[in-house]
Computed example of a mutant assay.
Amino acid sequence: MSGVRGKPPGRIRIIGGSLRNSRLDVPELAGLRPTAERVRETLFNWLAPVIDGARCLDLCAGTGALGIEALSRGAASVQFVEREPRSAQALRDNLARLGLGATGRVAAVDAAAFLAAAPQPQDLVFLDPPFTLGLWSGLARQLEQGGWLAARAWIYVESPRGGVLELPPTWQLHREGHAGEVRFALYRRALPLS
């Protein structure tokens, strides 16, 4: 569920890449917080050197704006995970309308349950769970220990500003920013030398 409140539910815009200015239909659901355009713009500027051809996982996808933005900018594939049925269906509908059915897949399941299944290592993960549920540490641990991250994976984390997160020590902060009451940060996985 993307973090910074941007445009209200209804429609949001893809801001870059091949789908620039495409609109996403967004259901009106309590707690759904699409990531603001300015935050997405900053994030994808950071990711520009590595997004092309990346395998991505959009956990707690909500509107799917982060994952669809990644596909628009050249990601090879995105696995979207969204437990809320109406959000998952809206995401499927948006992917079909935008012609992304072959590269974007939606799992309508809880993120922790999804991560308990057989892993598929990802190059980039968007970790933006609902702020009220406090899921960051548990999901981060599952990602790290469950084999979901490529050796040098990138992990985007969106969380309340001032919150303290317990993230794996192998996740090294690359860049961060703030927008209102939200902190957004990009980490790089760095395994210790053996």
Rank of each mutant, 00 (worst) to 15 (best):
L100C: 12
A96F: 07
A140C: 06
V39C: 07
R73A: 03
D128I: 00
F80D: 04
N45L: 07
L98M: 09
V164N: 10
W171V: 05
A90V: 04
F126H: 04
P160M: 03
L57M: 08
S87G: 09
G134R: 10
W171H: 06
A48Y: 06
A61I: 07
R97N: 07
S72N: 11
V81L: 12
A140L: 02
G147K: 04
D93K: 05
L59R: 04
A61Y: 12
R183D: 13
G146Q: 00
S87C: 14
E41D: 15
N94M: 05
D58F: 00
S77K: 01
R92K: 10
G163R: 15
A153N: 00
E176R: 13
L186H: 09
R152Y: 03
L133G: 06
L91Y: 03
W171R: 06
R38V: 08
T63K: 09
W46Q: 02
P168G: 10
F131T: 14
S72L: 07
G134Q: 14
A153E: 06
G67R: 01
D123A: 14
A151E: 15
T63Y: 01
G104E: 14
L95N: 06
L115D: 11
G62C: 08
D52N: 12
N94G: 08
E181C: 00
V157G: 09
W46E: 02
E82Q: 09
G134D: 13
S159H: 15
G64H: 05
P121L: 10
R175F: 03
G99P: 02
S137C: 09
P168C: 01
E69I: 01
F131S: 13
A61C: 10
R40M: 05
D93Y: 00
V39W: 09
L133E: 15
Q172E: 15
S137G: 13
A153G: 03
G162I: 03
L91P: 12
A65M: 10
L43Q: 03
A76H: 05
Y156E: 02
W154L: 12
V78C: 11
R175P: 08
S77R: 05
Q120K: 02
L186E: 10
A112Y: 06
A179Q: 13
G163H: 14
G74R: 09
F114W: 13
A112S: 12
A107G: 00
H178W: 00
P130H: 04
G104Y: 06
L47P: 06
A107Q: 13
D110S: 02
A54C: 14
W136Y: 15
I51W: 04
P49I: 03
A185T: 01
P168Y: 07
L66F: 11
S137A: 15
L167Y: 07
C60S: 00
G147L: 00
A48N: 07
R183F: 13
A108Q: 13
G138V: 00
A70V: 04
R161Q: 15
V78L: 06
D58I: 00
A185Q: 02
G162Q: 11
R73Q: 14
P49K: 12
V182N: 07
V109R: 06
A150G: 04
Q120P: 03
R38W: 01
S87H: 10
T42F: 08
G99R: 05
